[in-house]
C-alpha cells in the first residue's frame, strides 16, 4: 500500500482533523452502545431474557453505596467553601446572612449534580473502563460471546442501570452535604441558628430546582457509564491500552458532563424559563 505523505505544513490540520474524527467515532460508538443497552434492558425482558439481578445488585453497591463517603465529604467541603465565598462577597452589600439561599439554590440546581457527577467520573468511570478493558485483554469478552452470552446484557446494562439509579441519589446526598457544610460555616462564624438557616435556605428554593438537578444527574449517568463502557470494550494494545482507555473515559466523561450541563442550563433557565 502506498503512503501519501502530506506537506508538513498541513500536519496541524491533519492532527485536528484526526481528533475531530475520533470524537465523532466516540459519539457514534457510545450512542450505538447505549441503544443496545436499552434493547437489553427494555425490549429483551419482554421475551424472557432478563438481565442478571446479582450483577445489578453488585454494581449498585460498588458504584453507589461505596461512593457515599467520598461524595459526602467532598460535597460538604464544597458547601463550606461556597458559603465562605458567598458570605464574604455578600458582606460588602450588607447581606452576609443571605448566603444560605444562594448556596442552597446554586447547590440543588447546579453544584450538587455537577460535583457528584465529576467525582463519579473519576471513581466509577475509571473503574468501569479499567475492568472492562482488562476483560478484553484477558479474552473474557470473547469467552462470553463464544458462550452466546451478550457482553452488553451481562456487563454493560448492569453498570448503566446501577449508575442511573444511584447518581441522582448521590446528587441528592451532595445537595444535603453541601447545604450542611454551609450551615456549619454559618453556625460557627455567624452564630446562625439552625431554624434561621433552614428558613433562609429553603425560602427561595422550588421543587423545579430540585428535579431539574436530579434530571441532569440521571442524564449525566448515561454519559459516564456509556463513555466508560465504550472505552473499556474497545481497548487495544494490552496494559498500555487499558491505561489509555481509563484516562480517556475520565477526560471525555467530564467534558461531556460539562457540555451537557451548559445545554441543560440554557434550555431549563433561558428557553423554558423554569
Amino acid at each position: 500500500m502506498t503512503n501519501i505523505r502530506l506537506p508538513s505544513i498541513l500536519d496541524p490540520v491533519a492532527i485536528i482533523g484526526k481528533k475531530f474524527l475520533d470524537i465523532i467515532k466516540l459519539i457514534g460508538g457510545v450512542g450505538l452502545l447505549l441503544s443496545d443497552t436499552f434493547f437489553w434492558g427494555i425490549i429483551a425482558p419482554l421475551s424472557g431474557k432478563f438481565p442478571d439481578r446479582k450483577s445489578i445488585e453488585k454494581q449498585l453497591i460498588d458504584e453507589g453505596v461505596n461512593s457515599v463517603p467520598i461524595v459526602g465529604l467532598l460535597s460538604f467541603t464544597v458547601g463550606l467553601i461556597l458559603a465562605m465565598q458567598t458570605s464574604f462577597n455578600l458582606e460588602k452589600l450588607g447581606a452576609a446572612t443571605y448566603f444560605p439561599a444562594l448556596v442552597a439554590v446554586a447547590t440543588v440546581r447546579e453544584l450538587g449534580p455537577l460535583i457528584s457527577s465529576i467525582i463519579i467520573s473519576g471513581r466509577v468511570g475509571a473503574s468501569i473502563a479499567a475492568e472492562l478493558g482488562t476483560m478484553v485483554v484477558a479474552e473474557e469478552i470473547d469467552a462470553l460471546r463464544s458462550m452466546s452470552l451478550h457482553p452488553v446484557r451481562f456487563l454493560v446494562f448492569p453498570r448503566v442501570i446501577a449508575l442511573f439509579i444511584m447518581l441522582p441519589c448521590l446528587a441528592m446526598l451532595a445537595n444535603v452535604a453541601s447545604i450542611a457544610g454551609a450551615f456549619v460555616f454559618g453556625a460557627s462564624t455567624l452564630d446562625m441558628s439552625f431554624a434561621s438557616f433552614k428558613q433562609m435556605a429553603f425560602e427561595y428554593m422550588t421543587d423545579t430546582d430540585v428535579w431539574t438537578g436530579l434530571l441532569k444527574a440521571a442524564v449525566f449517568s448515561f454519559l459516564i457509564s456509556g463513555i466508560s463502557c465504550y472505552n473499556g470494550l474497545t481497548v487495544t494494545g494490552g496494559a498500555e491500552g487499558v491505561g489509555r482507555a481509563t484516562t480517556r473515559s475520565v477526560v471525555f466523561s467530564i467534558f461531556a458532563i460539562i457540555i451537557a450541563d451548559g445545554i441543560f442550563t440554557a434550555v431549563f433557565y433561558y428557553l423554558l424559563k423554569l
Binding site: 476483560m135 484477558a138 479474552e139 473474557e140 470473547d142 469467552a143 463464544s146 458462550m147 452466546s148
Partner: peptide, 15 residues
C-alpha cells in the same frame, strides 16, 4: 454456539 465449547489461551475465566 451452544453446540461447541472454546478453551481460550489463558482460560478466560471471569475473575
Amino acid at each position: 454456539r451452544k453446540r461447541f465449547g472454546v478453551l481460550f489461551q489463558s482460560g478466560a475465566l471471569f475473575n
